[in-house]
Every structure is written in structure tokens, then in C-alpha cells.
Simulated scan of single mutants.
Amino acid sequence: MSAFAPQRREPGGELFGPRFTLFVDMLAVGLAAAVASLPLITAPAAFAAVCAVLCRSVREDRPVSMGEYVAEFRAHGLRRVLPAGVVVFAAVALVVLDMALAGAGLPGARPMSWALTAVTVAGLVVALRAAADPEVAHGWRPALNRAVTRSAADPAGCGLIAVAVGLCVAFVWMLPLLALLLPGPLAFAIMAVELRVEPAHDDTDSGG
């Protein structure tokens, strides 16, 4: 990744072009997020930082620097990371409970397993949309409230994010080592979902 100014071409840019540079940046910051997420409690901040730096990279048409990612990750602060990290542990516990119920063979276990799966997926989609919020570093609770509002107004976007998550799960199931690279592509997919309606707003503003 390069920390150079946007107007300076990347070495090899004549061969690969800016899209290849964005692809490499996406994988690199995704790998950094995977490493930063190892304690689990830091996973929300690590993923939100990926969303923030990729969003700025696309908006400003410039490469991503690792220093920018580190600064974005540190901007969340320990007090704001801890509550979000607790939610990650709760979500993992819910998934483990779901799997245990599915294999228990108890009466009503299958409907309960499907219900827990639906709740888990819905909560994960909202949490991912909150991570992509530009103001999430100032507090996860307001970001979650805005994510719930966006999700209610954009069910198609929720479906797209759920599909992206499902693809990531399938890739990890096929090749577990891919888990180290998937945070970047997943963040990019969520960012694309969040930004896909912006041109319509811009057209409206310019027409007014």
C-alpha cells in the first residue's frame, strides 16, 4: 500500500491500473483487521476502521495507507470498544447455542434453531451496517440506532449484506485460511451497499 499523494501514480500502475491498487489495499487492510480482531473484543473497531479507510479511498480516489488504518482503529478508544466487544462475545455464544440446539435432537429444537439463526443474521446485518457508519468512532449506540433506521428503510440492502456474509462463510468453510483476508472484501461489499444510493441524492441536490 502507498501513503503517497493521490496524484502520484503507483509503481506498476501503468500495467495494473487503479482498480488493482484498490484490490490490493482492500486485501491488505482486511489482513490488518483480521490480526487486530484476534482478541475478539477489538473486532468491531478493527472492522469499522476497514470500512472507514476504504470508504475514504473510494470517495477521494486515492490509495490507502497503513498509518491511516492504525489511526482510524485507535480513534475508537478503549471505552467505546469494550461494550461492542461484549456484544461480539454474546453473538458467538448465541451461535454456539444455536449449533448445540440443532444437534441436540430435543423436541422443538429445530424451530428454535431456525429462530436463533434468523435473529443472529438480522443482528449481524445491523451491526455491520453500524460498523460502516461514518460516525461510529464517536459511539456505537447512536451508530446502531442509525443502522436500524437504514435497515428498515432499505431491506434490499440488508439482503445484499446477508448474501455477502453467506459467501464469506462459504469461503471460510471451503478454505479456513481465507478468514484472514475476508474482512477487506466484506467491508468493501458493505460500503458499496451503503454508498449505492448516494448518486440519487446528489442528483436531487443539484437539481434543487
Rank of each mutant, 00 (worst) to 15 (best):
1 M>V: 09
7 Q>D: 15
10 E>V: 15
11 P>H: 09
17 G>Q: 07
18 P>E: 03
19 R>K: 10
19 R>G: 07
20 F>W: 15
22 L>K: 00
23 F>L: 07
29 V>K: 02
30 G>M: 01
30 G>P: 06
32 A>E: 04
35 V>R: 07
37 S>F: 05
37 S>C: 05
38 L>R: 12
38 L>I: 15
41 I>M: 12
42 T>V: 14
45 A>T: 01
46 A>M: 03
49 A>F: 06
49 A>N: 03
49 A>P: 08
52 A>V: 01
57 S>A: 05
58 V>M: 00
60 E>R: 11
61 D>T: 00
61 D>G: 00
63 P>Q: 01
64 V>W: 00
65 S>R: 05
65 S>V: 11
66 M>W: 10
68 E>P: 05
70 V>E: 02
73 F>I: 03
75 A>R: 15
77 G>H: 07
78 L>A: 08
80 R>H: 07
80 R>Y: 00
81 V>C: 04
84 A>P: 04
85 G>T: 14
86 V>M: 06
87 V>M: 03
88 V>H: 04
89 F>H: 13
91 A>K: 10
92 V>G: 10
93 A>Q: 10
94 L>V: 15
95 V>C: 08
96 V>D: 12
96 V>S: 11
97 L>S: 10
98 D>A: 11
98 D>Y: 09
99 M>C: 09
102 A>S: 13
103 G>M: 05
104 A>D: 07
110 R>I: 15
113 S>P: 11
117 T>C: 13
119 V>G: 12
123 G>I: 12
123 G>W: 10
125 V>E: 01
128 L>R: 03
128 L>E: 13
128 L>C: 09
128 L>P: 11
134 P>N: 12
137 A>F: 01
137 A>V: 04
138 H>M: 02
139 G>K: 09
142 P>Q: 09
142 P>V: 10
142 P>I: 07
147 A>D: 02
149 T>V: 10
150 R>Q: 12
152 A>M: 13
153 A>S: 14
154 D>S: 05
154 D>R: 09
157 G>P: 07
157 G>C: 04
158 C>Y: 11
159 G>K: 10
159 G>V: 09
161 I>Q: 07
162 A>S: 11
165 V>W: 07
166 G>K: 11
167 L>P: 04
167 L>H: 04
169 V>I: 15
172 V>H: 06
172 V>I: 15
173 W>I: 13
176 P>S: 02
177 L>M: 10
179 A>P: 05
180 L>R: 13
181 L>D: 11
182 L>N: 04
182 L>Q: 09
183 P>T: 04
187 A>R: 10
189 A>R: 06
190 I>R: 03
191 M>R: 13
191 M>L: 07
192 A>D: 00
195 L>Q: 12
196 R>P: 00
196 R>N: 00
196 R>M: 02
199 P>D: 00
199 P>G: 03
200 A>N: 02
202 D>M: 03
202 D>S: 03
204 T>I: 05
204 T>E: 04
205 D>I: 15
206 S>W: 14
206 S>I: 14
208 G>S: 14
